[in-house]
């Protein structure tokens, strides 16, 4: 792991589901501290791409490096990368049989071998950061969707990762809860966390992204800073997509 190397470097990435090609020759570089937002219509391969970064999906061609470490057949490199890459899911995926605090301390204690007291202190710090320290003793089923997603972010942070991946973090939320999750994400961005977000929240993209990437049909169509991306998109497909997302 070499923190001077690019945080994420993807070259010519291919991914197939049977005969269907989900990703076609993706190239992407994310620098340390950079915030990248990925958008695109459903089925465009954006979730598949970020799920390849921590090997929830195995890629079929090309290469992925995280801080210089190549993701390959080597089990060690997969473990290493997963330790440094946190992920937040659309469906939260909190462990329902554990309390909020246990959700947050499980991985640090098992993977990083942090002592319990220290893990709990770290967890409480991050729960405070996502503004729900008072819910630490509750079970996920007793929380609202927005609260659950904030716990999920805290859980990912407790591993103190270098990079956070967000896979449509607000898509499963009721409209009134989206803001509380986005607020947390904005705070993280301002603190310099390296973030790759798949999201349809264009306001969020405009506010925090260093770069916005538009994907369609398994390919990267357009890649630009938010100002340029929203105000002067180059591709016809981007323009069509933006008009559909922003149009109403």
């Amino acid at each position: 792991m070499d923190l001077t190397a690019p945080a994420i470097e993807i070259r010519n990435l291919d991914k197939y589901y049977g005969a269907f090609q989900a990703l076609r020759g993706i190239d992407l570089r994310v620098a340390r501290g950079e915030r990248v937002v990925i958008c695109g219509p459903s089925g465009s391969g954006k979730s598949t791409m970020i799920r390849c970064i921590n090997q929830l999906e195995e890629h079929d061609g090309g290469e992925i490096r995280v801080f210089g470490t190549l993701l390959d057949d080597n089990l060690g490199s997969i473990d290493e990368i997963r330790r440094e890459v946190g992920m937040v899911f659309q469906q939260f995926n909190l462990f329902p049989h554990m309390t909020v605090l246990e959700n947050c301390t499980l991985a640090p204690m098992l993977v990083r071998r942090t002592p319990r007291t220290e893990a709990e202190a770290v967890a409480m710090r991050y729960l405070e950061k996502v503004r729900i320290p008072d819910q630490a003793g509750k079970y996920p089923g007793q929380l609202s969707g927005g609260q659950q997603q904030r716990v999920a972010i805290a859980r990912a942070l407790c591993m103190q990762p270098e990079i956070l991946l967000f896979d449509e973090p607000t898509s499963a939320l009721d409209p009134e809860m989206i803001a509380e999750v986005l607020d947390v994400m904005v705070t993280l961005a301002q603190e310099g966390m390296t973030m790759v977000c798949v999201t349809h929240e264009m306001g969020f993209a405009r506010k925090v992204a260093d770069r916005v990437i538009f994907m369609d049909n398994g390919e990267i169509i357009e890649e630009a800073p938010p100002g340029e991306f929203f105000d002067a998109p180059k591709s016809e497909r981007t323009r069509l997509f933006l008009s559909q997302v922003l149009g109403h």
């Binding site: 921590n54 090997q55 929830l56 473990d79 997963r82 330790r83 890459v85 946190g86 992920m87 899911f89 469906q91 995926n93 909190l94 462990f95 499980l106 991985a107 098992l110 993977v111 999920a152 859980r155 990912a156 591993m159 991946l165």
Partner: peptide
């Protein structure tokens, strides 16, 4: 058990046995 449970455990870096035994 929803697939996301195992994926979340993987994403947190839990190896196979703890993932099975705890999640």
């Amino acid at each position: 058990v929803p697939r996301g449970q195992e994926e979340a455990a993987k994403a947190l870096g839990l190896p196979y046995w703890p993932r099975m035994a705890r999640i």
